[in-house]
Amino acid sequence: MSAVKRFLDRIMLLDLFTGLGVTAKNMFKKKHTVQYPEERWEPADRFRGMFRLDEDRCIKCTLCARDCPIDIIYIDWHSEKNEVTGKKQKLLTRFDIDVQRCMFCGLCEEACPTEPKSIWLTSKSYELASYDRWSNLYVDMDDLMDWKIRPDYTDEEIR
C-alpha cells in the first residue's frame, strides 16, 4: 500500500495540496490585523507606557532616581516654609526624565513608596512620536504632570 501511496503522492503532489488547503482555509477566516490609526489597539492594565508624575503625592525621597538602572531621573528639591501650616516642606525644583535613554522598565514605579504611586508608567500611551527631533526627548516636570495621554494623530493629519 505504501509504495502505491508514495507513487501517488509524488505524481499528484498530495503533500503540497495539504499545505494549500491550510492556506485556503485561513483565507476565509477573520483577520487579526488592527487597522491603525482608525482602530487603536488598547494595551492591558499593567502596560508600561509613558510615565506621569503627580507632584502632590511625591515625597521627594529620590528612591526612583536611585533605582533607575541607567540613572536618567534628575531630581532637585529644596525646603521651603509653607505659609499656611508654618511647617517646612520639600518642594520639587527639577524632576526631569531623559526619555531618549529610558527603557520603560518600571523600576522607578516599583520603588515609589507612596500609595497610590507618584510616578507611574501605566498611562497606556505608546504613541510618543513627534514631527521634530528635539521635542519629547527630555521631559521636564511640567510635561510629566500634564502628559497628554492619547495624542490624536488622525486629527493632526486633517489639520
Partner: peptide, 8 residues
C-alpha cells in the same frame, strides 16, 4: 550634567 547618583 549627571543624575544625583553621579554616574553616567
Amino acid at each position: 550634567a549627571g543624575p544625583i547618583t553621579g554616574t553616567g
